[in-house]
Amino acid sequence: MSSPEASHERPLSPHLQIYRWQITNTLSIVHRLTGFALSAGTLLLVYWLIAVATGPGRFAYAQALITSWPGQLLMLGWTFSLFYHLGNGIRHLSWDAGWGFELKTLRATGWLVVLFSLIMTGVCWWLAGAIPGIAP
C-alpha cells in the first residue's frame, strides 16, 4: 500500500479507455466472471447437500427448484462456467510452467478453451438427457 497522495488519480492498467478489445483480454475477464459465478454456485452445492442430509421432503423441494426453468438456466450457466474456468485454468497453469506465451499460441489456446467449454457443456447436457439412468 502506497501513501494516499501517491495512489491518487494514477491511471490504472490496462488503460481500458484506449485498449483495443481482443480475444486475450476478453477471455481473461470471462475467466474472472466464471470464477465468481462458480463461487456463487457453491451455495447451491451446500443447499443441495443439506437437502439430501435432511430427508426426502427437502430433497424433492430442492430438485423442483433445480429442475424449474430458472434453475435449469442457472445450471446451464454453471456448466459452462465450470468447463470454461477448468479449461482456461489449465491454460493458466501452462503459463505458470512457462509455456504458451507466444501471441500465436496464446490466441490458439484461447479459442481452444472457448471450443472446449462449449462442446463440454453440450456433451454434458446431452448425456444428462440421453442416458439419465447410468449407474452411479
Binding site: V52, P56, F59, A60, T79, L82, A128, G133, A135, P136
Partner: peptide, 17 residues
Amino acid sequence: AWSIIGLTSADYATVHA
C-alpha cells in the same frame, strides 16, 4: 460433473446412497 450427470433423474434413495 460426470457423477451429477449420472444422478440427474435419480430418486432420493439413489442420491443418498
